[in-house]
């Protein structure tokens, strides 16, 4: 069994130049996802379509887009459901990030934030990766890996898809805002750390005009997150911690 759908796909050159919607008819298996449909556009209509994808099961976080106006990972959205919502199905790149071309956004700023949060949670499996050049018997000597790269591993549920960045209204105008993903990562890293100094440092990074206090409680990050990370709750918890610390310092 197959279904036929029309997709309205946002197309543009780098920087969002020449942005427009183009329609494509695709015929795919009736249990296809929206990502399958996007791949069908690429395979059957236009090999120049730029889009990101890898795992097809919501764990790599690379395919995030807007489907019918809402941020989703299209690899876990049934095309049939999307069609019931709106036909033709509209596919757009995430918002609040620079457009790199078609459905792909530049995530440099996003990862700068994630790195600043230190992301100290390391999964066992990732520990085994040859993170130091020495570990692999010198085979990759040309690659110099800086100290602390192990911290680069992802923290718990967050798949770093950028959906919360796209959903957050403050992110639309404030590039200095640390944003939901980084603030959630800061909260998670602090919970994980046993080092009091590091915990203080992480709380310091969350404080400030463009830290937790720039959040205006629209709750969109938490509502859109495909992995139940709940950045909004983490932001509120860190506010309380900051206030508690400030109060303790006053009292002493």
């Amino acid at each position: 069994m197959t279904i036929t759908a029309t997709l309205e796909v946002f197309r543009c050159a780098p920087g969002g130049v020449d942005g427009r919607f183009e329609s494509y008819d695709v015929t795919v298996h009736d249990n296809a996802t929206v990502l399958d449909a996007i791949e069908a556009v690429w395979a059957n209509h236009d090999r120049s379509l730029v889009f990101r994808h890898a795992c097809h099961h919501a764990s790599c976080g690379s395919c995030g887009v807007l489907v019918n106006g809402s941020e989703v990972l299209p690899c876990i959205v049934d095309l049939a459901d999307a069609l019931r919502q709106r036909s033709p199905v509209r596919v757009e790149p995430l918002r609040n990030l620079p457009l790199a071309g078609d459905l792909v956004v530049d995530v440099t700023g996003f990862f700068e934030r994630m790195l600043a949060s230190t992301m100290s949670i390391t999964r066992t499996a990732e520990d085994a990766l040859p993170l130091d050049a020495d570990d692999d018997g010198g085979r990759s000597q040309a690659v110099s890996v800086p100290d602390g790269l192990a911290r680069f591993n992802r923290f718990e549920n967050c798949v770093e898809c950028g959906i919360c960045i796209s959903a957050c209204p403050t992110m639309a105008t404030d590039e200095r805002f640390r944003g939901p993903a980084m603030l959630a990562a800061l909260g998670r890293a602090r919970a994980e750390s046993a080092d009091p100094q590091q915990r203080e440092h992480l709380l310091d990074l969350a404080d400030g005009e463009h830290g937790v206090w720039r959040c205006h409680s629209s709750w969109e990050c938490t509502q859109r997150c495909p992995q139940q990370v709940d950045p909004a709750e983490s932001i509120m918890e860190q506010r309380r911690e900051i206030l508690r610390r400030r109060f303790r310092r006053r009292v002493r």
Partner: peptide
């Protein structure tokens, strides 16, 4: 800043 007030496809929080 128009995005602040764009409630299309957004939840009650927006």
């Amino acid at each position: 800043a128009g995005r602040w007030f764009d409630v299309r496809h957004r939840g009650p929080g927006t």
